[in-house]
Computed example of a mutant assay.
Amino acid sequence: MKPLIVEHSEPITLIGGGEVGENDLELALAVAPVLVAADGGADRAVARGHMPQAVIGDFDSVSDVVRRQVPPDRLFPVREQDTTDFDKALRHTRAPFLVGVGFLGGRVDHQLAVLNTLVRNAEKPCILLGAHEVLFHAPPRIELALNPADVVSLFPLARVSGRSTGLEWPIDGLTFEPSGQIGTSNRSTGPVTIEVDLPGLLVIVPRGAFDLVTQAFRSAQRAQWPAHAE
């Protein structure tokens, strides 16, 4: 296993160097009070008056000005170029769950890399907060107390199948895969339960459901994928 840099009993907010909405960081910190920056995310955090407890990355994005402001014992360089800073930060942290801000929006290639990282680190529960949606990698089972007519999009990055309750178009009997069946623009009829057989399915719900998603991630009813050996 990769050595951990930050391990905490409280949820962690992970801030990246991408687009961070006006209230994103405060909204995340209200439920995940431990702040960790992925490289250039430190600039975003300091600009909003928050000093991260750790900065993790290859340090090619954080500015020299901010790097001098961060206490040296909070700087954790990971000197390799094979992975993104989001990947580095996610792999080197452990918490009940993480909330990521500054990782959606902006360049499409960056977003695709983030989604790839979510799936490859399936055992790391992480909620990404965007301008319009909340996105997360589906655990084996999750219950979401959504409102009727909420949009629920399911997008596979691997071949998966599953079951659902509370969706207008149930997923029972379907096989999702990136080059085949996908499940965008489904709708809830009320509280939703989603079960999947393997990692690889992304769930996207409205931003207004952020509190409901974090409640589900805190719940003992949410199963987790097992950690994989590295």
Rank of each mutant, 00 (worst) to 15 (best):
M1H: 12
P3Q: 15
I5C: 08
S9M: 01
G16V: 05
L27V: 02
A28G: 04
P33S: 09
L35S: 04
V36Y: 04
V36D: 02
D39K: 01
A42H: 01
D43E: 03
R44V: 01
A54L: 04
S63A: 11
V65S: 09
V66Q: 07
Q69Y: 02
Q69I: 07
R74G: 02
D82V: 02
D85L: 10
D85Q: 12
D85C: 07
A95E: 05
F97H: 04
G102H: 01
G105R: 09
V114L: 09
N116Q: 07
T117C: 15
A122W: 12
A122S: 15
E123W: 15
G130K: 06
G130C: 09
A131I: 01
E133D: 15
F136I: 04
F136S: 08
P139A: 11
R141G: 08
I142A: 11
I142S: 12
L144V: 09
L146T: 08
L146Q: 06
A149T: 13
A149M: 03
V151Y: 05
V152M: 04
F155N: 02
R159T: 14
G162K: 01
R163L: 09
S164W: 14
P170F: 10
T175Q: 00
T175Y: 01
F176M: 05
I182K: 13
V192L: 02
L201K: 04
L202E: 11
R207W: 13
A209G: 13
F210A: 14
F210C: 04
V213M: 00
T214L: 06
Q215G: 15
R218S: 14
Q221D: 14
R222P: 00
A223F: 13
A223S: 12
Q224H: 06
Q224A: 07
Q224E: 08
P226V: 12
A227P: 09
